[in-house]
Amino acid sequence: MIRFFGPFIAPLVGAGFLLALLWGFITTPREAEAPTAAHEYHKGEKEISFSFDGPLGRYDRQQLQRGFQVYKEVCSACHSMKMVAFRDLEGIGFSGPEVKAIANQWAVEVPSINPDTGEAATRKALPSDYFPSPYANETAARAANNNALPPDLSLIAKAREGGSHYLYSLLTGYEEQPAELVRKFPDAKTPAGLYYNPHFANLNIAMPPPLVAEGQVTYSDGTKATVPQMADDVSAFLMWAAEPKLENRHRAGVAALIYLLIATAFTYGAYRNIWRDKKH
């Protein structure tokens, strides 16, 4: 009898052990997670559409130039874009001379070396230079921002879930902290030096509202510079900075799809031609 059932004992014991583990996992009581302020009051992205959304989306060069102006006049005071060169701006419609003038007139000069003395120096930026950081180093950046380090914006639109939609929501999402939130979660009161923004992960962000009033910048194309418009434009510009080849990728995708459709049609035609005289 043992010899007959012997080969089945080990598998049965193993199956029983696994079933016991599974049953224990299912029946073990779990404590419900305590609600948090971030869980209850965090908001997702606002409803907004960009010209580059979707598989056929394209950048609006005029909007990108306005977004660059917002970055230059507002954001660049705190945030670097160390992976974007001035000459890259030709990709959003600026001419060579315009790029040269933008680089030459940039508020922060580029670190350099004095050829006569070999000592550290600065010089006017060239089109081949990358956007210089507004701070000499990380220590200086933290000292100027209540120990918070302003992130580099070169890839921020790809580094945050939601991309440009998240950036727009964040820039336009500052508001007073609800009194109800403080009553329900006293420990979640926004600390001094931080700002309440329900679109930020933990609701409190170190960055002060960067876009605060209509007309904060003056657009050269006459567009009315409302806070939502400026946020829309700079979010689009940051998306371009993170993915300047997006339009090429879209075109390649469409071309590949058309090729596959044609190849499928030819393949099906060949199949029908080969098998049309064959009887099943």
Rank of each mutant, 00 (worst) to 15 (best):
C78H: 06
P115H: 05
I102S: 02
A103K: 05
A120I: 09
L155F: 15
K124A: 07
Y135I: 00
E161V: 10
S164Q: 14
P132C: 04
E109A: 15
Q105G: 06
G91C: 09
A141S: 08
K158L: 12
V108E: 12
P115M: 06
P127K: 11
P150Y: 06
L153W: 03
A157E: 07
E138V: 14
D116F: 09
P97M: 05
I92V: 11
W106M: 02
K158I: 05
P151M: 11
E161G: 13
C78R: 01
E119D: 10
A157N: 11
H79L: 09
A101L: 13
P111D: 06
R160Q: 13
Y135L: 01
P127W: 05
I102F: 02
D88L: 04
V74G: 02
A141V: 00
T117C: 10
E119T: 05
M83N: 15
Y135A: 00
H79F: 07
I113V: 15
A159V: 05
G96Q: 15
F86I: 03
F131R: 02
N145F: 00
N145V: 04
K82I: 12
P97W: 11
S133P: 08
G118W: 08
E73I: 00
S164M: 04
A77T: 13
W106G: 00
H79I: 04
S76C: 04
K100M: 10
G93Y: 03
A101Y: 11
P111Y: 10
G91K: 09
D152I: 07
A103I: 04
A148P: 08
A141R: 02
N137D: 15
C75G: 10
A103C: 06
S164F: 03
G163H: 02
N137M: 02
N147A: 12
A85L: 02
S80K: 08
D88R: 10
T122K: 14
S95N: 12
S133N: 11
K158G: 14
